[in-house]
Write a protein that binds this DNA or RNA. Structure first.
Length: 297
DNA sequence: TAATCGTGGAA
DNA sequence: TTTCCAAGATT
């Protein structure tokens, strides 16, 4: 309803002065940080906390300062350098993304959302984050932090809804002020607010710059209605853990692993076979029982 | 649409 | 100890 007015909402731009005063000093906010650096950081930040990304990002950019440099290395190097950041298919996607940028865009990270979306490993969030933060485009950037801020400050809900581009993007678009710098800082500030103040468990409404206008706070912080979000499946004993153990062995080895060596990482045959099969399907592992298993070239 | 995909730190 | 959560993408 607010966006039907055409002039946009007016809740979130109040974040801008707060953001400019309180933003963290993060690597990707340094002067001279490249679009490629932004792209790499966004891949690493997909479901991985900032504090774990920072050191790995620095190593990565020192080794691969351009898309072409990463594209010239085998994918196995990317998976090894990724180490235990989690979700190793992101390393594969990032490598494929570097190859595509080198081949299709002359080694220059594109600035158009539609071109970014066409690259491997880049979805609705990452495409707009690169366009907005690396190139200053006035596009809505909606991650889990922004969705939570929108849910509370604009919609008056305790918890965010599931990601939904048809809902998220117009809603945030309606909050962006006309000025490019203000729009960029509204995006970045909403993320920062969600990360530092409007957090999931115990929001710090006492220090929130939106306290005088937050729909949820003004309504008395009502409890979450509706069904609770599905709880994450346990990691111990999961296929994910087995995949992680197999990959850990592969990263540590310069030569292909024998089938017996792969089998040694997990006692239960059916689950171990399932994990290995899924790794082969994902392209994170190549080979066979006869020739041995290794990381992809 | 919903399930799947790592890993580690904090509550 | 267990649970929650973290700048999502893909199928």
């Amino acid at each position: 309803m607010p966006e039907s007015l055409g002039s946009g909402g007016d809740n979130l731009p109040a974040i801008v002065p707060w953001f400019r005063e309180n933003k963290r000093d993060l690597p990707w906010r340094r002067e001279g940080f490249t679009p490629w650096g932004t792209l790499v950081s966004e891949f690493m930040l997909q479901q991985t906390p900032v504090v774990r990304v920072i050191p790995r990002l620095a190593e990565w950019l020192e080794r691969w300062p351009t898309p072409a440099s990463l594209a010239a290395s085998p994918a196995s190097d990317a998976v090894r350098a990724w180490d235990r950041l989690g979700y190793p298919r992101r390393a594969l996607n990032l490598h494929a993304c570097a190859v595509a940028i080198t081949e299709r865009h002359g080694g220059v990270v594109p600035s158009d959302v539609s071109e970014l979306l066409a690259l491997p490993g880049i979805g609705d969030y990452t495409a707009r984050a690169i366009a907005a933060f690396a190139y200053g485009r006035r596009v809505p950037v909606v991650d889990t932090n922004v969705r939570r801020v929108l849910a509370r400050a604009v919609e008056g809900l305790a918890e965010p809804w599931a990601p939904n581009a048809k809902r998220d993007l117009p809603l945030m678009e309606g909050q962006l002020p006309p000025d490019l710098d203000d729009a960029r800082d509204t995006n970045a500030g909403a993320m920062e607010l969600g990360a530092l103040v409007c957090v999931a468990r115990t929001p710090r409404c006492d220090v929130c710059p939106l306290a005088d206008r937050c729909a949820w706070l003004l309504a008395g912080r009502p409890e979450h209605a509706g069904p609770k979000a599905r709880t994450q499946k346990k990691y111990e004993g999961s296929d994910r853990q087995v995949r992680g153990l197999i990959l850990r062995e592969l990263r540590a080895s310069d030569v292909p692993l024998t089938a017996a060596e792969v089998e040694s990482v997990w006692g239960e045959p059916a689950q171990r076979d399932r994990a290995l099969a899924s790794l082969l399907r994902d392209g994170l592992v190549t080979g066979s029982a006869d020739e041995g298993y290794s990381l992809p070239e």
